[in-house]
Design a protein around this nucleic acid. Structure first.
Length: 479
DNA sequence: TGAAATGTTGGGGCG
DNA sequence: ACGCCCCAACATTTC
């Protein structure tokens, strides 16, 4: 039976916005516009989405505000709906008489299967569903090892990427687009309740400007200077030496190929930064081929690793009260701004799994809850890398010394002072190890350990030995 | 995209 | 002048 609705020149084409909240270099929007039909942009808030931490929801709210403005420039509305996307889209097609839906692919576990399901369910109703690439520079299945399997080590992946992937130029920008009259359809942005009910979001507002224009601004700032010294400065947490694009990229407010081409145009010095973009590709490649790694270690010998640290220390870590300044500064930066410098992420994450012996899954969950850039693929990859149980992983015996990392990457203590004001007046000699500072130094700086700033929750040398011991035991058990 | 322990070397103080 | 020792600086190995 043919259920196809009569498609007229006035029947709309729906653009289903997902994590691609931009109007430039937007394959789905461009394809819809090219049909000549009126275009109906829609965003569907689904419950139970993986990125539903409060910080992430805050970002989404403001990103939708921004998208609505951008669409208005093209003469388009943005319809907001909530519920299961399939039901919602079917309903919207029926109501508006649409016969085509365009969207970008997404790449989290079960997305591929789900997109299959969408395509067939919609085609049953005579509606064409088109999923476009555009969220990544390469599809997760594009690159294969010589043996035909997925990569598990970055360097060979990087080589294959450099050899095979040709990144297209971004799409030409759109002029006005024919719009579909969407009156009386959809709900208000406020009713999505994405904003926090109590005002804890001041730090986020001060730090970020969600949306495509904020993304463009960060890219421009980065390419105007920091990109040149990226290799040496990206590890300094008190310097704005990184692109600050992670959250914008996660929500698709800017496309990876826009970044790729803009960076490349600045010359050969952009190479280290471009390589960093390919880590994102690698993380998505891994998650696609090993979807179970969101909660299980990639390397099976870690299945029953004894993560038997004191569970009460999880909240100590979350609050930034471990007594190790670099770890605490990072955790407080995260809580306040929804973001943490990457070098500090490595140190703070290593501290949770190796010093505190708490499961990396707990850390990953906390990061998903609090990061504005919370991204399942990147986050999963990063945590497994840190714990030593993932792809291209840090060997387990590589235990970061948070004090040394502080001295090395924050030699003046500027980052510590920014996020731990109670240590403000401690000299750079002692700011990374207040618990070793002479009593006079502490007194002069007005710091009483245990009152103003905590004693270390565990001694570094002791923790290191304990972690190495667990590793040795695991190796024994797997022989 | 470590850190700590251990090993090696070479300059200089000193008898 | 010579050998001995100390130890800082660097290199290598181990976890």
């Amino acid at each position: 039976m043919n259920l196809q609705q009569p498609s007229t020149a006035n029947s709309p084409v729906i653009v289903w916005f997902r994590r691609d909240l931009r109007t430039s270099d937007h394959a789905a929007l461009s394809a819809a516009a090219a049909t000549g039909h009126p275009v109906l942009p829609v965003f569907v808030l689904e419950s139970g989405e993986s990125d539903n931490g409060s910080a992430s929801r805050w970002w989404l709210h403001h990103s939708l505000v921004s998208l609505r403005k951008e669409l208005a420039v093209l003469g388009l509305p943005l319809v907001l709906l909530r519920g299961g996307a399939l039901e919602v889209l079917l309903g919207l097609c029926a109501r508006s008489g649409a016969s085509e839906v365009h969207a970008h692919h997404q790449y989290e576990p079960s997305d591929a299967e789900r997109e299959e399901k969408f395509s067939s369910a919609l085609s049953m109703q005579g509606i064409q569903m088109h999923f476009h690439p555009g969220t990544l520079l390469s599809e997760p299945t594009d690159l294969r090892t010589g043996k035909g399997g997925p990569f598990q080590v970055f360097t060979p992946y990087w080589k294959a990427f450099a050899n095979k992937v040709r990144t297209q130029e971004p799409l030409p920008s759109l002029d006005r687009v024919r719009s579909f009259e969407a009156r009386d359809i959809g709900v208000s942005l406020e009713s999505l309740k994405l904003l926090p009910s109590i005002g804890w979001d001041g730090g986020l507002r001060a730090a970020w400007n969600p949306g495509a224009s904020g993304a463009a601004k960060n890219l421009q700032r980065f390419l105007a200077g920091p990109v040149e010294h990226y290799d040496s400065q990206r590890d300094l947490p008190h310097v704005q030496g990184t692109s600050q694009l992670s959250a914008h990229l996660h929500f698709g407010e800017i496309s990876p190929r826009q970044i790729w081409h803009a960076a490349k145009a600045t010359g050969p010095t952009a190479a280290p930064f471009l390589r960093q973009l390919v880590w994102r590709e690698f993380a998505h490649h891994l998650l696609h081929h090993f979807p179970h790694t969101t909660d299980k270690p990639l390397r099976p010998q870690f299945e029953d690793f004894p993560w038997d640290g004191d569970p009460s220390l999880l909240s100590t870590w979350q609050k930034g009260e471990t007594g190790y300044p670099l770890v605490d500064a990072g955790m407080r930066q995260l809580w306040t701004t929804g973001w943490m410098h990457n070098r500090v992420r490595m140190v703070a994450a290593s501290f949770l799994v190796k010093h505190l012996l708490l499961p990396w899954q707990e850390g990953a969950a906390w990061f998903r809850d609090t990061l504005v850039d919370a991204d399942l693929a990147n986050n999963t990859f990063g945590w497994q890398w840190t714990a030593g149980c993932g792809a291209d992983a840090a060997p387990y015996f590589r235990v970061f010394n948070p004090t040394l990392q502080g001295k090395k990457f924050d030699p003046e203590g500027a980052y510590i002072r920014r996020w731990i004001p109670e240590l403000q007046n401690l000299s750079k000699r002692w700011i990374h190890e207040p618990s070793s500072a002479p009593a006079l130094e502490l007194a002069t700086a007005g710091v009483t350990l245990g009152r103003d700033y905590p004693h270390p929750v565990i001694d570094h040398a002791v923790a290191r030995e304990r972690a190495l011991d667990c590793y040795r035991r695991m190796r024994m058990n797997n022989q």
